[in-house]
Amino acid sequence: MSDARPLLEVNALKKHYPVKGGLLGGETAKVYAVDGVTFSIKRGETLSVVGESGCGKSTVGKTILRLTDPTDGEVFLDGERIDNLSAARLRPMRRRMQVVFQDPFSSLNPRMRVRDILAEPLVNFGLTRSRSEIDDRVAGLMDKVRLPRDAIGRFPHEFSGGQRQRIGIARALAPGADLIICDEAVSALDVSVKAQIVNLLSDLQDELGLALLFISHDLAIVEHLTHRVAVMYLGKIVELADRRTLFSTPHHPYTRALLSAVPVPDPTAKRDRMVLTGDVPSPINPPTGCRFHTRCPFAFDRCRTEEPMLRPIGDREHQSACHLDAVPATH
């Protein structure tokens, strides 16, 4: 399957939100939430999108899912373009991509029983005909996420955070999706529960051949479960590489800063930390040239005027958007 087309292809995806204001409520500015993002995911692969809050990583997920319409760019799911489909044509495609949200409390309707939550996608996509068939499928889903079958009559508030997240995963599995977008799916959970959910996701991936788009700010978790990583900064991907390359030889200064901020569980470890100063600039008025130049310790004149494109660095699979060929050591 390696030579087949990737399951998901995202091409120069843009999402700009209008800022309305003024006397007549006209558009006064734009938020460049996602500004030209290109990547692809193969079947059974995990791509993690990491970055600070507000860098547009969640918007990427929502735009692919068409929970919000893209401003520009193309999205292909299994070779079929989905970013410009009408609502009616999009509906059958929705079966193949599902989502798991961050907050296990607000992602389940408090007034619906687990059975009805899990049956909803089955009924919507016409995957079952009879009540008993729904019951069988729901029971099977509960098994898959390792929840007791007899819990299907309960309401979401009767479960713990980790259990609710399992219900959310079961709902995403229900229609038999090929791609699951995990939007900070484990960020709101306790550390021990986090590990369980991450392991559950990897097991399900092995078992079902799922592709995962894992949106997260937690690099430790990402390192544990991903195949490839895309680092985002202010609506753009600044570096894209397989896990080992990215974590061992990061190229982009921003990636290096992110990695040096990961806590190490060893108080005596000496670390060469690269600490960024200042805040993320506003996506309403992003800096010219390289968007990172305002905080980059290695910035030079070219960075302020010319925007670096994502280009291969060494290995073909490793791409970075930086003018420097080799980023100097911090000291």
């Binding site: 599902q98 989502v99 309707n109 408090p110 996509f125």
Partner: peptide, 26 residues
Amino acid sequence: EQPYVEAAVASGTRAPKIILRHILPN
């Protein structure tokens, strides 16, 4: 804007059903 409504959209629920099942009861 609730995630469960977005999840319902993602799982193919049509607007009238979203209103009846997810919005009105709440």
